[in-house]
Amino acid sequence: MLTNVAAVLLDGVHPFELGVVCEVFGIDRSDEDLPVYDFAVVSAEGPALRTHVGGLTVTTSHGLDRLDEADLIAVPAGSDYARREYPPALLDALVRAVEHGARVLSVCSGVFVLGAAGLLDGRRCAVHWRQSGELVRQCPRAIVEPDVLYVDEDPVITSAGTAAGIDACLHIVRKEQGTEVANKIARRMVVPPHRDGGQAQYIERPLPRSRCDTVGEVLSWMERHLDREVTVEQLAARAHMSPRTFARRFQQETGTTPYRWLLRQRVLLAQELLEGTDDTVDAIAARTGFGTAAALRHQFVRALNTTPNAYRRAFRGPQAA
């Protein structure tokens, strides 16, 4: 039963991501017949912490010993979390909490703290798409899903940037207290009551990246020729490898198969064209290698849970479609 929640902070914490956790778990809503959590803000680095907003600091009287009582420990995002060292006592406390049956939740870059504690090893996890490459590099044993809102690998829940933290928090409430309670809190916050964790982040189309140069040139070629139909055999020949070796190297260096990588890049290019051009869906389908509007629509819905026209309207207004 979820009754005791702690948000643990480090220097440079982001106020919005902290506010998300406080809004869901830290407000007394007993007058609305909603659960009241025993909530505390905990400092991992002294009683006063700076935020990434100039001149704004956070003070709290709670230290790491407060985490021993928590059913849920939330780690909000912070500046440079991907490039700093963490207090060993904090990492030990997080591991100990999970061993004793508590859940841990990260919001955006807070996931790097969980990774440093070894809590992502062998687990699927979410992060803001701009930090997915760095998380893969730092936590090679984690299964990073760079384009979803949140991942529940109980007892470790990870969410992507900013508002996705709201979705993950409400997901936990829904899981513990039911849909009605989660919907009431969402209504108070004036946010959608439920966005599934697998819903895709709206991300920019990234340049192809590889952890080494083995398939880097092939990735660049694929990026430039998304409209072409290619086989693994043809790609392997470009890399001067056997198809079997190429497929294995590709999986090792990109975390996915050539087909799935190509499919994702095509969807991302379609997003870019829907946002920035007046091309018809048929024309976009041709430019992105899907061939027909029906094929594009099918893959777009599978990847983003929305149609191309609905996506265009969301970014450019009702008249765009």
Score class of each variant (00 low, 15 high):
4 N>F: 01
4 N>K: 08
6 A>L: 05
7 A>T: 13
8 V>I: 02
13 V>G: 00
14 H>D: 11
16 F>K: 01
17 E>T: 06
18 L>E: 00
21 V>W: 00
23 E>R: 12
23 E>K: 09
26 G>A: 08
28 D>E: 01
29 R>H: 08
31 D>E: 07
33 D>Y: 03
36 V>Y: 09
36 V>S: 10
37 Y>Q: 01
38 D>C: 07
40 A>Q: 14
43 S>D: 14
44 A>M: 02
45 E>Y: 06
45 E>Q: 14
45 E>L: 10
47 P>Q: 02
49 L>K: 07
55 G>E: 07
60 T>P: 15
63 G>C: 14
64 L>M: 13
66 R>K: 09
68 D>E: 15
71 D>C: 04
74 A>H: 00
75 V>I: 13
76 P>M: 00
78 G>R: 00
83 R>T: 06
84 R>V: 10
94 L>T: 08
96 R>K: 15
96 R>G: 15
96 R>H: 13
97 A>L: 06
99 E>C: 11
100 H>V: 07
103 R>W: 03
103 R>N: 08
104 V>R: 00
105 L>I: 15
106 S>V: 13
106 S>P: 13
106 S>D: 14
109 S>H: 12
114 L>D: 08
116 A>L: 08
116 A>N: 11
116 A>Q: 10
120 L>A: 00
127 V>F: 05
129 W>C: 05
131 Q>W: 06
133 G>H: 01
134 E>K: 05
139 C>F: 10
141 R>H: 09
141 R>F: 11
144 V>I: 07
151 V>P: 01
152 D>R: 04
154 D>N: 05
155 P>D: 09
158 T>F: 09
164 A>Y: 12
166 I>P: 04
175 K>E: 12
175 K>S: 12
175 K>D: 10
178 G>P: 08
192 P>M: 14
194 H>D: 09
194 H>A: 08
199 Q>V: 04
204 E>P: 10
206 P>I: 13
208 P>K: 11
209 R>T: 13
212 C>W: 07
215 V>W: 04
215 V>N: 05
215 V>T: 14
218 V>H: 03
228 R>M: 10
228 R>G: 02
234 Q>E: 14
236 A>T: 00
237 A>R: 06
239 A>Y: 01
239 A>T: 06
250 F>G: 02
252 Q>D: 12
256 T>S: 04
256 T>W: 01
266 R>S: 12
266 R>H: 12
267 V>Q: 11
268 L>V: 05
276 G>F: 15
277 T>D: 03
281 V>W: 09
282 D>K: 11
284 I>R: 01
286 A>M: 09
287 R>T: 07
289 G>L: 01
289 G>P: 00
290 F>Y: 07
295 A>K: 02
297 R>T: 15
300 F>K: 00
305 N>T: 04
305 N>I: 02
307 T>V: 04
309 N>F: 09
309 N>K: 05
312 R>F: 14
313 R>D: 14
315 F>C: 12
317 G>E: 10
320 A>P: 12
